[in-house]
Design a binder for these strands. Structure first.
Length: 570
RNA sequence: UGGGAUGUAGCCAAGUGGUAAAGGCACGGGACUUUGACUCCCGGAUUCGCAGGUUCAAGUCCUGCCAUCCCAGCCA
């Protein structure tokens, strides 16, 4: 399989759950007559750092950044925030672009890099020096830390703070020229060492790094810090609204300081929102990378991971993910969304669109004793119960069938509607049968179940007088296609792995993956390869694994189970 | 002991001083059903972190307190 994710057509992911929230209110103000952006087009940007794979937390940011632009008929740029050559790599860029396209968003020809602006950014640094607003500092990292003060005590000025402008300029140019080793000098903004906001205590805006950059190569040996490069990049792209997560709230005064003191072509407004968290998983790139690199999962796209590539492999649809993000709303409350809500959004989408099929995950033989050996017939079943347009396909029936082991009990609890001796059950799409018994091996394991079909009930004809409450799925032993099925559960056993003091290795769910090697599906699936997968009736939604499934060896991942209100009465 | 934010049902989340505190998820009950699915009904906050105050009227305004989150990278 391994299909390459294409741009999802927009109408494929159209959702209409937009509700008003504070960001929209701010934008409305700004665009209204008298507002600071009156007459302009709303212009946002999504600025990932290419140092890891995108996860569903990013999806929220993407939906907000691209979605807001769409809402106002504006534009959203894609920009790689690549100001730290030490951590970033081109290989992530491709994956990031793929994931955004998959979600159904497009940046047109506006794909940029912070590194595109290194020359301009450098120029703004010289401007600050010229204005006496930046200085070259010689403090070591340790000295700088000591002089920064603490959360409750003010910092003290660097001894180099009042270096003459000419000297600053000379040193800064020589930093660029590569005359100094890493760490020897930094360029710092001259703001306020006594500020309660640590970000304003003369922050470093340029550091020396003799590192090859993935795009600019060895052109530069000094690199701007995020706080300096970001507002400049935004302004150069004429971004109106720079939407970011809450932890940058403290940085807004610095963002505004840069915008106010550099001769930039526009003045973007930064607005912060709470990032998305989901229980039973982790969302930090650092932790995800550790899990991947330690081989605890099968790569960045392991279906148990909250990465977009993992969710895609798991069978999540772009629509479900966008819907999830939109329905969660936008606020400033740090929140943890129940993973059940994510699952609900997937079922909501797949229920409408996924073709239905039958699969037996844990088979046991069912023999219809009054059906002749060697005989066989074909039934036509609808691909979707509520959507005739979805078409139909054929299944075969014969004396020996396969059913789910849990659909037979010799001695069932009350209100068990499935097979047990004497009980009537409907075989989905075929006929009604009466269970007549079973045989077991020496361990007491059921090895074969027996039943008789009730003549005249083929094709779903009305039951004969008795109420048939149970319907089970089944396969024809003759035509069933063997396959592998992978079932997934939470990656972690605790709701909040980040908040747990134990090492995360202890919190990993040992049963997060269950591989079923003895499962079967209808022959129809061997040729259909539905891109959004299938509903295996009474079980859940499954999709072919985009790494491992082949025509010779089908592999299905369970995207999400069906809701199940069956509660055994003990 | 600093600065910045946030507190409305188990989880998200509307609410921008005016009769009865949206909606969704989860959960429970019921109807329907050739998926114990879907769909459809019904159910929950005398109360909005707490305490005072202003007002004819406060979740919405004021004061104080409490709790939680973020910030001391030459990361983003």
């Amino acid at each position: 399989m391994n299909y390459y994710p294409e741009i999802t057509p927009k109408e494929e992911v159209e959702t209409d759950n937009v509700i008003s929230h504070f960001i929209l209110d701010f934008i409305d103000e700004d665009m209204a007559p008298g507002g600071q952006f009156e007459g302009l087009k709303v212009h946002t940007r999504f600025p990932p750092e290419p140092n890891g794979f995108l996860h569903i937390g990013h999806a929220k940011a993407i939906v907000i950044d691209f979605g807001t632009a769409e809402l106002y008929d504006g534009l959203c740029n894609l920009r790689m925030d690549d100001t730290n050559p030490e951590k970033e790599d081109e290989s992530y860029v491709k994956a990031i672009k793929q994931d955004i396209h998959w979600l159904g968003y497009d940046w047109g020809d506006r794909f940029y890099h912070a590194s595109d602006y290194f020359e301009e950014t450098y120029g703004y640094a010289e401007e600050l020096i010229e204005k006496g607003l930046a200085f070259v500092c010689e403090q070591t990292p340790e000295e700088m830390r000591d002089a920064r003060g603490t959360l409750t005590t003010p910092g003290t000025n660097s001894p180099w703070r009042d270096r003459p402008i000419d000297e600053n300029m000379d040193l800064f140019r020589r930093m660029r020229a590569g005359e100094f080793p890493e760490g020897r000098y930094t360029l710092r903004a001259k703001i306020d060492m006594t500020s309660g906001n640590l970000n304003l205590r003369d922050p470093v805006i340029y550091r020396i790094a003799h590192k090859e950059h993935h795009r600019t190569g060895d052109t530069w040996c000094i690199y701007p810090m995020y706080d300096f490069a970001h507002p400049i990049s935004d302004a150069l792209e004429h971004i109106t609204h720079s939407l970011c997560s809450l932890e940058f709230e403290d940085h807004r005064p610095l963002f505004d300081w840069v915008v106010a003191n550099c001769s930039l072509p526009s003045k973007p407004r930064q607005i912060e929102f709470a990032r998305l968290n989901i229980n039973y998983t982790v969302m930090s790139k650092r932790k995800l990378r550790a899990i991947v690199e330690e081989g605890l999962v099968d790569g960045w796209d392991d279906p148990r991971l909250p990465t977009l590539s993992g969710l895609r492999r798991r069978g999540y649809t772009p629509r479900a993910i966008r819907d999830f993000c939109e329905r969660n709303g936008v606020s400033k409350v740090p929140s943890v969304v129940d993973v059940k809500f994510l699952e609900y959004c997937l079922r909501e989408d797949l229920n409408k669109r996924a073709p239905r099929a039958m699969s037996v995950l844990d088979p046991v033989r069912l023999t219809i004793t009054n059906y002749p050996e060697g005989q066989s017939e074909t039934f036509t079943v609808d691909n979707h119960p509520n959507d005739p347009k979805a078409g139909s396909h054929e299944i075969t029936f014969s004396r020996h069938l396969l059913i789910e082991r849990e659909d037979f009990m010799e001695d069932p609890p009350p209100k068990y509607y499935r097979l047990y001796p004497g009980n009537l059950v409907r075989l989905r799409g075929a006929c009604i049968i009466r269970c007549t018994g079973c045989v077991k091996d020496d361990d007491g394991t059921v090895t074969e179940v027996f039943a008789e079909y009730i003549p005249g009930t083929y094709g779903g004809a009305s039951p004969p007088g008795e109420r048939v409450r149970g319907t089970i799925h089944w396969l024809d032993e003759e035509t069933a296609v063997p396959c592998e099925v992978r079932l997934y559960d939470h990656l972690f056993t605790v709701e909040d792995p980040d908040g747990d003091t134990r090492d995360y290795h202890e919190l990993l769910n040992p049963n997060s993956l269950t591989v079923l090697k003895n499962a079967f599906v209808e022959p129809w699936l061997a040729t259909t390869h539905s891109k959004i997968g299938y509903q295996f009736m009474r079980q859940g939604y499954f999709i072919e694994d985009n790494h491992d499934s082949t025509n010779e060896h089908l592999v299905f991942n369970r995207s999400v189970s069906l809701r199940d209100s069956y509660k055994p009465e003990i």
